[in-house]
Computed example of a mutant assay.
Amino acid sequence: MTQENLRTGVLQMLAAMALSGTIGWFVLQSGQSVWNVVFVRCVLGALGLGLYAWWRGLWQTWPFTRASLLWCIAGGVALVGNWLLLFNAYHYSSIGIATVVYHTQPFWLLLLGRLLLGEALTVRKLAAVAVAFAGMLLIVQPGQGAGGGLLGILLALGTAMLYAVVTLISKQLPKTLAPTHIACVQTLTGVLLLWPLLDNASLWVAGSHWGYLATLGLVHTTLMYIIMYAAFRQLPTHWIGLLGFSYPVVALLVDYLAYGRLLDGWQLLGVLLIVAANVWGLQRVPVAAAPQAAKAGA
């Protein structure tokens, strides 16, 4: 790997994570139900990624086997559930806190890998899980996590677990399958799942919400995935993991600039513990946002 490739990959990854960190603001500003937001994101994301794959000549042959197509659909179900829970978490807690709690997903991946695949858990990894859990408890402190805030944090935890499921499913896919193809099937699965649940009365009317929704579909899905997958090809795994922490940093900054929300001292300590646990304990764990799995963020 050349220094030029590394520099390009770093810039691409930072750009993708910066986009991820602004997703929550666009979701809330759209004023639409979560069903509508995820549906439009899936429609425009599938369209944009499909056209991009066609432009790159990736549809010249059918890329799926029956088994890989079924695994992609299963991953799509988990991914759509991931988006639904995360976007709801923004409403019930905050963009910043939901995003930080969501970043406990590498630990859920470790635990699910142990339970479902029999993967070994070292003392170091178990200690990292404990540190991250302590950090989460500091974020969900008495008074801060009560009522709706607690519900938002539980939804974010569900999001993290579902993303770990998406990652485990992605391990069943052939490495020759292009990430764009996987993302197309996953988003098309979302279109089919969510069509019956639309709030048509609020969605199919002219309004400013279409600008936010179009940005989520074309920028935060199509463009972000393209940039992110390009970064994955340029960067070693540990760089991807470290740069991924710019995502919650941007989300916290957006939360402050847009809504004036600040973490108190204990919550900030909790965030730092979660970050430290990832950096220290999971250095050799494959990053959950691998090219074979669509980035949920989101």
Rank of each mutant, 00 (worst) to 15 (best):
T221C: 08
H238F: 10
G207A: 08
T237W: 01
I169S: 03
H220K: 14
S170Q: 07
D264W: 11
T159M: 03
A206Y: 12
L137R: 13
T167F: 06
W239M: 11
K171F: 05
L137M: 14
G148N: 14
V191R: 08
G152M: 10
F245G: 03
D264P: 02
Y225T: 15
A164R: 02
I182K: 05
W195P: 04
K175I: 07
V166N: 10
T215K: 10
A160L: 00
G241N: 02
L218K: 11
A178P: 09
P196T: 03
V165E: 03
T221H: 08
L203I: 05
L155I: 14
T176G: 13
V205Q: 15
Q267E: 14
G211T: 12
T215A: 15
Y212S: 09
L268E: 01
G152A: 10
F245S: 00
L257E: 07
G158Y: 04
D264H: 09
H220W: 14
L188M: 11
H209G: 12
S208E: 14
I169Q: 07
Q172R: 12
W195K: 11
L194V: 06
Y229M: 07
F232S: 13
M228D: 05
Y259M: 08
A251T: 04
L173F: 05
L154I: 04
P142L: 12
V140A: 15
L253H: 01
Q186R: 05
M161V: 13
V250T: 13
L162C: 09
W195I: 14
G241V: 07
M161G: 00
G207V: 08
L193N: 10
Y163W: 13
L216C: 07
D264S: 02
V205F: 09
L203G: 03
A183P: 02
L154W: 13
T187M: 15
M224D: 10
L216P: 01
A214L: 15
L216E: 09
L252R: 09
L263R: 05
A201L: 04
H238K: 11
G207D: 00
T215R: 12
H209F: 10
Q267I: 13
G143N: 08
I240S: 00
W266I: 06
L168P: 01
L177H: 02
L203K: 00
G244V: 05
G207M: 04
R261H: 15
V166G: 02
L150A: 13
S202Y: 02
R261F: 14
V205W: 07
L173K: 03
P248D: 06
T187P: 00
W195R: 12
T221A: 09
V250S: 09
Q172G: 06
Q172H: 10
A201W: 06
A214E: 11
G158T: 01
A258Y: 12
I226R: 08
L197I: 03
A183K: 03
G145C: 10
G145A: 11
G207L: 07
L177F: 02
N200P: 00
P196Y: 04
V219N: 13
L137P: 09
G158N: 04
A146V: 10
L262G: 03
G211P: 06
K171E: 06
R261W: 13
Q144P: 00
Q144E: 14
A156E: 10
L173D: 05
Q186W: 05
L188G: 02
I182P: 01
A146D: 15
C184V: 13
A201S: 14
G265T: 14
L203W: 07
T222V: 06
I153C: 14
A251N: 02
Q141D: 05
M224Y: 02
Q267H: 09
L253R: 08
